Computed example of a mutant assay.
Amino acid sequence: MTTTLAVANQKGGVGKTTTVASLGIALVERGLRVLLVDLDPQGGLTFSLGIDPEDVELTAGDVMLGRHRVTEALVVTDEGVHLLPSSIALTRAEEQLVGRTGRERRLSVALDAVAADYDWILVDCPPTLGVLTVGALAAADEVIVPLQCETLSHRGVGQLLDTIHDVQQLLNPRLRVLGVLPTAYDGRTRHARAVLETIGETYGLDVLEPAIPKSVRFAEAPAIGRSVLGTSPRHKGAEAYRAVAARLVDRTPAPAVV
């Protein structure tokens, strides 16, 4: 069975792209077939995996508009994941999608056509709660909310959960919130620990473990066009993402042997 996981938070800079790239590579390391979907018009995931968004001919937007199939737009990265890329052209596609019938389900329909080819599909959502994020939630089985352990980082969590609830009620009743993934975490500070406790108490969300430690390695990796698992494989941040990936896999059925 294929599991589609959306990584969403309308606040920028909380580690969505790093989480998608790192979890994707960690799953590939475990021998799984992985498709990453870049739904951010800024193309951060695409760039982070060594592909210049300005050189991308087809994007997720072309697929959602029905102009091309997923297989026509796919790129295979150096680290072994398949990528449905993004570029600034996705902004124009998003504007066109607003007036299209079934706009919220277009990504789901497109991914259904290739789901049998993958064990995991991970979607990097843009830092908004617009049509692209709603489309990702409508296509997903599960959603993770990456969250920096700072007070201002969790102010929009309630709004995101309201959007998820609406998607569950109207578009995708199978969608499940796995929980919050702490990023840029410094367990030595009382403030960081207090933020996590506040999230759990206020919103009733599980806190995924281990927390992803704060490190400059995550900022350095995209410049090389690889994930932190590729640039610093033994770093504590890489090991943390491997541990999170292991937890995701251990609670799901093993992929069928063909």
Rank of each mutant, 00 (worst) to 15 (best):
Q169K: 15
D112M: 12
A115N: 10
R100N: 02
E104C: 03
G102D: 02
I121F: 10
Q169G: 07
L152R: 13
A140M: 14
V114D: 04
E104H: 08
A113S: 13
V143E: 15
P127K: 02
R106T: 00
R103H: 04
L129A: 09
D166P: 07
H154P: 00
I164V: 15
W120H: 10
L111W: 00
R174K: 09
Q148H: 05
A138M: 09
H154C: 12
T133W: 02
G158D: 02
C149L: 04
D124A: 02
L171S: 12
D119A: 06
L122K: 02
A113L: 12
L171G: 10
A110W: 04
R176C: 12
Q148N: 08
A138P: 00
V131C: 05
V98Q: 04
L178N: 08
L171V: 13
A115M: 06
E104R: 02
D141I: 05
V177M: 08
Q159I: 09
V123K: 04
L147K: 05
L147V: 15
G135R: 01
L122W: 06
E104L: 02
A138S: 10
D141A: 08
L111N: 06
L122H: 03
D119M: 10
W120D: 03
L171H: 12
L147N: 07
H165N: 08
L175Y: 07
T151R: 06
G156Y: 08
G156D: 11
A139E: 14
V157P: 00
R174Q: 11
A110S: 11
V123S: 02
L170P: 05
L122P: 01
L170D: 08
T128Q: 12
L147T: 14
T163N: 09
G179P: 11
N172D: 14
V131D: 00
V134F: 07
R176H: 13
R176F: 11
L122Q: 07
C125W: 11
E104D: 10
G179E: 06
G158R: 14
A110E: 02
H154S: 12
A116T: 12
D117F: 04
L147D: 00
P146F: 06
S153F: 02
R176N: 13
V143G: 10
C125N: 14
I121L: 03
A139H: 14
E150F: 15
S108C: 09
L129V: 11
D124R: 01
V177P: 00
V145L: 05
V109R: 14
S108D: 07
L152I: 11
D112C: 10
L161V: 02
C125I: 06
Y118M: 00
I144P: 05
R106H: 03
R155Y: 02
L161D: 03
V131M: 03
R106E: 00
R155E: 10
